[in-house]
């Protein structure tokens, strides 16, 4: 498993819907063990990029490799040995509405490892649900009985069911209140550190970017125009990047991050690596 220092490698990706080109010669590598934030204006194809990587969207051209296996050469439902190594959290959670949360978590387990006993399955589902920060009694609830934030956590529990190495999150904090969003960010970071996950995170949430992302990829002009830490991105002079990070919301998130790191400076040396924010 040494060869995949880049769990996801995308090169020359082209996606087109009718006349509209969404991606044109897009190239992006995701490093092992990082949280990669993907940002871009509405309609720049962030979700399409994710769908391409997980094989739900057939690109017109280009190569996508996940764990060294080509996604683009495989049929949509072909068994290519990577589906048990990733977990996906869709925007709305995409929980199966006729199953309880616990049964939702069991679906991938039963699919890939039918030999697991009932008792073990039950226990796994239970601790995954709790690992995702849901109360224990949520396991036997149906998705319709959960709030939006709880649905996302339940979706995360299902995404984590197989102990994946790679986690895709599509706007995980959208629609959550700031406290819930901050908790979700924290959870993502904790899980990444505990389980050694690589996280591909689509977001609009500047706080998320500042708080937990190791690198940020910016989608614009049908390409990834820049990848790097936020200070590196701020050093570029692309107008969209400047607008994005130094607009009023960007500055607010920056200031919050600066306050946070000041407070954490003494206790947590990790905060030193983070951008301290400039002049905000």
């Amino acid at each position: 498993m040494q060869q995949d220092d880049f769990p996801v490698r995308i090169s020359g990706l082209v996606n087109r819907f009718g006349d509209q080109t969404v991606h044109d010669d897009l190239t992006l590598d995701v490093r092992k063990g990082e949280i990669l934030g993907v940002v871009g204006g509405s309609g720049t194809g962030k979700s399409v990029l994710m769908r391409s990587i997980i094989g739900l969207q057939r690109p017109v051209a280009g190569q996508i490799e996940v764990f060294g296996n080509s996604i683009t050469d495989a049929e949509p439902d072909e068994e290519i040995g990577v589906r048990c190594r990733w977990g996906v959290l869709f925007q709305g959670g995409a929980l199966f509405s006729t199953l309880t949360v616990g049964e939702n978590v069991q679906v991938p387990l039963k699919q890939f490892y039918p030999e697991l006993g009932r008792e073990l399955l039950r226990e796994i589902a239970q601790y995954k649900v709790m690992l995702s920060g849901l109360p224990a009694d949520a396991t036997s609830k149906y998705p319709a009985e959960l709030s939006g934030g709880m649905k996302k956590r339940a979706g995360l529990a299902r995404a984590l069911a197989l102990d994946p190495e790679l986690l895709f999150l599509d706007e995980p904090t959208a629609g959550l209140d700031p406290i819930g969003a901050a908790k979700f960010d924290q959870l993502t970071k904790e899980l990444k550190e505990t389980l050694g996950l690589t996280v591909f995170l689509i977001t609009h949430d500047l706080d998320t970017l500042y708080e937990i992302c190791d690198r940020v990829a910016v989608l614009a002009d049908k390409k990834v125009i820049a990848v790097g830490t936020i200070p590196e991105l701020l050093a570029t002079d692309h107008p969209w990047i400047q607008d994005y990070f130094t607009g009023p919301r960007g500055r607010a998130a920056q200031a919050a991050q600066a306050r946070e790191s000041k407070r954490a400076m003494s206790s947590n040396s990790r905060a030193m690596d983070k951008p301290a924010g400039k002049g905000a």
């Binding site: 309880t100 226990e123 239970q126 601790y127 709790m130 690992l131 505990t194 389980l195």
Partner: peptide, 22 residues
């Protein structure tokens, strides 16, 4: 180190709850 992290993450989780409705 890795096992210990995982052990810490999963222990203290009560797994007595039910998956299905009673």
């Amino acid at each position: 180190e890795r096992s210990q992290r995982l052990l810490d993450a999963v222990q203290m989780r009560d797994s007595s709850g039910d998956i299905q409705r009673k």
